[in-house]
Design a protein around this nucleic acid. Structure first.
Lengths: 169, 169
DNA sequence: CGCCTTTGGTTGCAATTTGCAACCCGCTGT
DNA sequence: ACAGCGGGTTGCAAATTGCAACCAAAGGCG
């Protein structure tokens, strides 16, 4: 493979984790494959039909996702022709990013109603927006945020605030 | 331009907003440009130096972002050589998606510490993880979620729950 | 066992995109 | 008038994408 398209994390490496994430997911199809996977798609032909993606590209992308540890590839025992692609924990944790993107698309695209919908098991109501939270769990709006250089961070004041159960998995 | 790379939303259109979002942001550089913009970068040369991106590509990407209403392009009055690129509200609202991606990269990349850091103006502490919330504002974990087809949604029960101040802007 | 089918890929090739470098052009400052 | 800056465009080579055809290891079956 090439050196023309130099990996983003080679360029920006230690400065920011975004390029690193993009190296794995920053392609047109990666999120679509992820979405299909979340929707219960597990096999090559299923992905191919769901997404109308070229077979060689699909092959390439699945390999890449596997290489990045986002999906796991397993040859099935009972029928060794079949290969099962499954999201790993690392892949599952891309859900907030994917949903955030989807919600943004819903809000700003001309009234697209995505299906299927993610609902709360408690009451089967659709979930709310993906939000940014403070270290104590409060939901933060853009206006309450500030960029700080890593060097000028406040040391965490003595346990004035207790860490909220800030779930992620 | 071509018909080889058919727009994702042409294919999946009304089914899901994700392809629509990806049509605008699903390229290697888009999120990097967005990141720079959030970091206060406004001018062509600044982007170019920050990102080490080829000038023609940068030009193309900025145009695309402007076309999609994510950034606004304004020729500056006091020096008509200069052009100022600014995030629109639509662009600003990509922040949760970008942060989610970055946090994912931080968690799963080999200990990359992103700079600058987004902090809560209240106490200048770094923000917590981007989370999915229920319609009532509760933070949801992956295990509390379920995919439902749009047709089998529960009608919202009589005001048993009050809508939480589910901030977004 | 031979032969067909399914599954998950490769391969060959043309069209498109990316990236580097050089060039361009309308301001501004002097 | 003229050098230099800001923000691009252009030409070309290398890489990626996509279509369509081909391939091959299992399984099914008469």
């Amino acid at each position: 493979m090439g050196k023309l398209r130099e990996p983003l994390n080679d360029i920006y490496g230690d400065n920011c984790a975004l390029p690193l994430a993009l190296e794995a997911m920053g392609e047109r199809w990666s999120f679509m494959i992820l979405r299909a996977a979340f929707n219960g798609v597990h096999h090559f032909e299923e992905f191919q039909q769901e997404l109308s993606i070229a077979r060689n590209i699909l092959s390439n992308r699945l390999s890449r996702l596997v290489d990045h540890g986002i999906m796991a590839r397993e040859v099935m025992a009972e029928d060794r022709r079949k290969v099962r692609y499954e999201l790993t924990q690392k892949g599952i944790e891309l859900l907030p990013a994917m949903i955030a993107l989807r919600q943004w698309g819903e809000k700003w695209g001309a009234g697209v109603a995505s299906t299927p919908v993610l609902v709360d098991t408690r009451d089967e109501q659709p979930i709310g927006p993906v939000t940014m939270t403070a270290h104590d769990g409060r939901t933060l709006t853009y206006g309450e945020l500030l960029w700080k250089h890593r060097s000028e961070l406040q040391p965490l004041g003595q346990a004035r605030v207790r860490m909220a159960p800030v779930a992620a998995e």
